[in-house]
């Protein structure tokens, strides 16, 4: 169901460049397709834990950066955390990139799913939300599908027109919501970041 949003026509550019092959860095969502966790998008929290969200949003947008042939580093754009793996196969988020723990090989299985394997620990990413009771070494790897960021498919004009159209509440004496909530804090772009 979350993938339904992506059913938009793409431009007739070279598909490889459209999908970011020409770039060192790709911005993508990572859709988890089972076998343990399905139908959600991977994200790394600010505290370093890894979980899933049902909808694509700014919190679970990921940056994929190539560091070697077929080898990538994955970073959550919002929390600025790298996806890393410990020796026992547990995944977590780190602020600092560790070449040993945060480097993964991007592989494709026979069904077309993406799988990610640690270069050092030789273990696949196994994404389980509950605490695992068994050793991770013998479990099946998790399947993922990279999902492109929405901005790939929207022209600048469309983005602009969406943002600038104010929502209208015609049953209100303040249909443009001019008066802000009383709890509204003073915000500064320098602080909000």
């Amino acid at each position: 169901r979350p993938l339904a949003q992506q059913s938009q026509s793409v431009s007739d550019e070279d598909p490889l460049f459209l999908y970011g092959w020409g770039k060192i860095t790709r911005l993508q969502y990572l859709y988890s397709a089972g076998p343990y966790v399905s139908n959600c998008f991977l994200r790394i929290r600010s505290d370093g834990s890894v979980d899933c969200e049902e909808d694509q949003n700014e919190r679970n947008l990921l940056e994929f950066r190539a560091v070697a042939l077929k080898t990538i580093a994955i970073k959550d754009v919002s929390s600025v955390r790298y996806l890393c793996m410990s020796a026992d196969g547990k995944i977590y988020g780190l602020i600092r990139y560790s070449e040993e723990d945060c480097t993964f090989r991007e592989e494709m299985d026979c069904l077309g799913y993406n799988q990610y394997r640690s270069m050092k620990h030789h273990l696949h990413i196994i994404f389980i939300q509950a605490k695992p009771r068994e050793q991770l070494q013998d479990q099946k790897p998790s399947n993922f599908i990279p999902v492109f960021h929405r901005s790939f498919f929207e022209t600048g004009d469309q983005l602009r027109s969406k943002m600038f159209s104010l929502p209208l509440e015609s049953d209100s004496m303040d249909p443009f919501r001019m008066v802000e909530d009383v709890d509204h804090l003073v915000k500064s772009p320098s602080f909000q970041k």
Binding site: L166, F176, R177, M178, V179, D183, S188, S190
Partner: peptide, 30 residues
């Protein structure tokens, strides 16, 4: 650091937050 001008409404507020002490509410000039 200056970014904008705020249009301010007087509004009596009564909560335990410091923002309530100033009794202001903001209006966006559309």
């Amino acid at each position: 650091n200056h970014f904008t001008t705020r249009f301010v409404i007087h509004k009596q507020l009564n909560t335990n937050r410091s923002v309530a002490d100033r009794d202001v509410q903001f209006l966006q000039d559309i």
